[in-house]
Write a protein that binds this DNA or RNA. Structure first.
Lengths: 196, 196
DNA sequence: TCTGGAAGTTACAGACCGGTAACACCCTAG
DNA sequence: CTAGGGTGTTACCGGTCTGTAACTTCCAGA
């Protein structure tokens, strides 16, 4: 009902997009395949013709999310070509936007909280995306001429990760409201210390 | 099987403790009441004589977790009476211990990720605990004579929150490995800026 | 126009879920 | 000894879950 996204496209795409949306809103274990197919305007058989199991659907959803996240870095480069520091600030703004977008945290982190089996196929995707994100951020910091680029990148990573769960637990008026201030302060402070 | 904690005590206590353990390890939606009672060495009827629903059991588990977390602050005061700065450093060490304890994050944050209904009774408990934690940390920072105590407390909060989910997604060798360094650096840096 | 594959439909299997009823048991307080 | 409350046991309810079988319908390309 409220979970639309039923525009006419290929069933597989509709299922994937609908599942992504519903997993995000209601959690993975909180949504059944029947509900997904119904919201996607199709049926269970069609889902199982395109995905061999719910687990594979989950993995494919997370992969799609990772793909969209990857495009973000290209957008920064397109907007501020070569200016890594400007891109870093753009990342901060983008992160703040995500915080205010809705009360749900990061899909990857939420999935990791729900899928507790240590060898669940989704954990691989999650880890890969998080490591890719970290490397992108390190590259930005390094490119901006910041000494201790790894430490700043890791600190900013944890700060954002924490802010996203904080929004989910205490709301957007909690500690996460200060995210931009914290991040900008950290960048400034790290720029102060000598770059090698 | 692997989820023991069946020492002979009152059934209600065993159920509560076993549920806490299993929710922590396997997630809330990943554990059924049958599995809990069996691991607690009792049966479903006894559970439902003490808790009127699974939701109430969840709430009671989170309350117990909140209670244990509350005791932590008293332990700091007992160990370093009056010395708020030492207590703040003790908090950092304690936080680092929690990071290395196991690969699962904060029970409250994980519960918030799973229980998506905005009016779920557990969300109240979660929010209350997180707000209490924040106030305790602010009090420590303020007591340690730090200007911008709220900002430091919020930053440290987000950092720990982020570190706990990072452990869950990329493991203990990821960004969270630098948590102590980040936290100590922040405290030092905030102590540098004038108190008032 | 014919045909083959993709998609929809209905029904079902088998397991598990939260929750309850009815009844037998034991152990302790009086 | 006895009464009664806490506990254990068994069986069950209705619902939902993932996943499948068998069949029909639709539609695009040759």
């Amino acid at each position: 009902m409220t979970d639309g996204v039923v525009e006419r496209s290929r069933p597989r795409d509709r299922i994937l997009e609908t599942a992504r949306d519903m997993f995000h809103k209601h959690g993975i274990k909180g949504v059944g395949v029947d509900a997904i197919t119904e919201a996607a305007g199709t049926n269970k058989m069609t889902l199982y013709r395109h995905f061999e199991s719910k687990d594979e659907l989950i993995v494919e959803c997370l992969r799609a999310t990772a793909c969209k996240a990857g495009a973000m870095w290209d957008a920064f480069e397109a907007e501020y070509p070569g200016d890594k520091l400007a891109q870093l600030h753009a990342w901060v703004r983008k992160a703040a936007d995500m915080l205010n977008a809705d009360g749900r945290g990061c899909d990857m982190a939420n999935a990791a909280a729900e899928l507790t089996e240590p060898d669940h196929p989704a954990r691989r995707v999650i880890k890969e995306l998080k490591e890719a994100q970290r490397e992108h951020l390190v590259a930005l910091c390094r490119g901006a001429g910041i000494g201790q680029a790894e430490l700043l990148a890791d600190t900013l990573s944890l700060l954002l990760e924490g802010a996203r769960v904080s929004v989910q637990t205490v709301g957007a008026e909690g500690p996460s409201a200060q995210f931009v201030r914290m991040a900008e302060g950290l960048i400034l402070s790290f720029r102060g210390s000598a770059a090698i």
